[in-house]
Design a protein around this nucleic acid. Structure first.
Lengths: 332, 332
DNA sequence: TTGTAAGCGTTATCAC
DNA sequence: GTGATAACGCTTACAA
């Protein structure tokens, strides 16, 4: 907190006025080459760093963005956060992070706290009510991840394609009775995925997909669900996400139920940890790094309407077959 | 970006002056109760939110802090980040997040970028040179996690105790030849852990601990190390952290080497994913949530020298025995 | 108790 | 090309 050096200090050192310093360093207006060098040198010597808050006050732009996620300890959001931060850095933005801990009230509070000190906000898998999203969107530039709302820019992976790939894989192996283990009710992705199942399942011959409750989107949730899945008589479980899938895997192992011999298990997303376990978890990979990058790009486009917009990336999903799925085996 | 409402708007609506609005809302100076209510009500109706940047300009305090970590996708740092953000929110601070991706140059750049717009900085497991840390510490309030430097506040877990618990456990099981799988050379924790091993190992009867290279502190690093560990002839591996431990586990499984029958494996930290695998990874738990919280507390104390300081928490570590360690078995 | 005025560090406007 | 000057939104002496 050592009193920092200002434009005036640099101005004095370089023998020019404050405005010239500003111009020389931000390079917007023409400055005599010789003067500029002198200013730059003085600034370097003094270790001058512009006060961004003060600059933002007048330019109306902070060069900060905010990212709100439900749970940083969920590797899915950790990956997205990492790529958001990385892309933001490259684009010259700093990132406020906010973890709502899956709580709607906290989420809303964080959004408000942040909205005044950023140029734009990225809401990742927001659980809040649509009306609240709309209200905030009126105040701040905003990009949504894993949720859509009229008029707002969204980055979403193709849930229908994910479901199609998963069902196709399991059906091809011979499974005819599958249990979908649902995530949070408020999760938009969860709703989309189940809707996709209801639409797509009938397109496969003789395929029945049942829904098993709603569980927390993490390892514990999967553990809770496992026994219900077994009782349902399904030969394969398709989990809301990888963490739930891993939870199911763990509980089945504990019970001595073999995967994939007795029951096949699939996750969704292919988060980093999906490869850590054995048997490895078959899953459908989402391009998380691309999702984060794309969200930042869209937000930057939104915030700088003059610039040439970057072309929207497409976000291909991809089946990743590991050892947790196989042909169902009739026993006894 | 809709032009936001200012103190003046509220002032006009409430029929008072801007300064009265400021006083009424921040509550520092006395304001007539009746006036205050009128102002508060007007502010609420207009949805007024103070511009923190402008406030910071005059008060010299931004109520923002910055957190720099080596890798958000590493669950160890994800946990710390989550608890930092959570505690910061409670203390009235917003958090800038910066992921250096284990790169020293990026780390330094991020620190500089952030240092001007925060009241304080938390550097988590910084890899940068001590001289650079010192330089930044001269400019900004700072708390270190997992690193110590003269005069700076640090939050560190007791590496010596971690090592003692781990060696005690393995030695008690009967292991006499252990391989320590090292993390990044620049990692201060890694250095401390190895130093602790050299100091503590001799206190156990007939115990030999060898060091196996330096590996990336993640799953891939562990996979790379596994074969070298096997070749070393050790009956147990103590990994730099859980991720490395999991990597070793996975590679051993692939090679058909049984854990713990053929080789015992231990991790350090007990990150969330350590329980996902089977066999579960024996490890020494660090109180990550407490670490993050404690760092924020210390930083807040530093930034508000007037306030009563919170008592420093102690950070107990704890052995967590799972299935990846057992008595070594002589085969053939 | 309240209003007026000054100023935080910057950049934008307008003269020169 | 460069220097005064005003202004961004806010807080805080200082007056009233």
């Amino acid at each position: 907190m050592a009193t920092s050096i200002t434009v005036h200090d640099v101005a004095k050192a370089a023998g020019v006025s404050a405005s010239t310093v500003s111009r020389a360093l931000s390079g917007n207006t023409a400055v005599a080459a010789e003067t500029r060098d002198r200013v730059v040198e003085a600034a370097r010597q003094l270790g001058y760093r512009p006060n961004l808050a003060a600059r933002g006050l007048i330019t109306g732009t902070t060069h900060n963005i905010g990212l709100v996620v439900p749970d940083l300890e969920n590797p899915y959001f950790a990956s997205i956060t990492k790529s958001v931060q990385s892309r933001a850095l490259a684009a010259g933005y700093s990132v406020f992070i906010a973890d709502s801990d899956e709580d709607i009230r906290t989420e809303l509070e964080l959004v408000h706290q942040l909205s005044k000190q950023v140029d734009g906000l990225i809401l990742c898998s927001p659980r809040m009510a649509a009306s609240d999203i709309a209200a905030v969107a009126g105040q701040t530039m905003m990009v949504l991840i894993n949720r859509e709302w009229e008029g707002l820019t969204s980055v979403v992976v193709d849930d229908a394609e994910i479901i199609r790939l998963a069902l196709e894989h399991l059906h091809a192996l011979g499974h005819r009775h599958i249990a979908y283990v649902g995530g949070p009710e408020k999760s938009w992705s969860n709703q989309k995925r189940w809707a996709a199942i209801e639409r797509i399942a009938p397109t496969f011959d003789d395929l029945e997909v049942g829904k098993v409750g709603s569980y927390a989107p993490n390892f514990d949730g999967g553990q809770s669900a496992a026994d219900v899945v077994v009782a349902s008589g399904a030969t394969a479980a398709l989990a809301y996400n990888d963490l739930v899938g891993l939870g199911i895997l763990a509980r089945l192992t504990t019970r001595g139920i073999r995967v994939p011999e007795d029951l096949s298990v699939m996750g969704i997303d292919d988060v980093n940890v999906a490869t850590l376990v054995s048997p490895g978890l078959t899953t459908v990979r989402s391009p998380l790094k691309k999702v984060g990058r794309s969200a930042v790009n869209s937000l930057v486009d939104l915030m700088n309407p003059t610039d040439r917009h970057s072309a929207p990336e497409d976000l291909p999903v991809q089946l990743v077959v590991r050892q947790s799925t196989s042909v169902p085996q009739q026993h006894s």
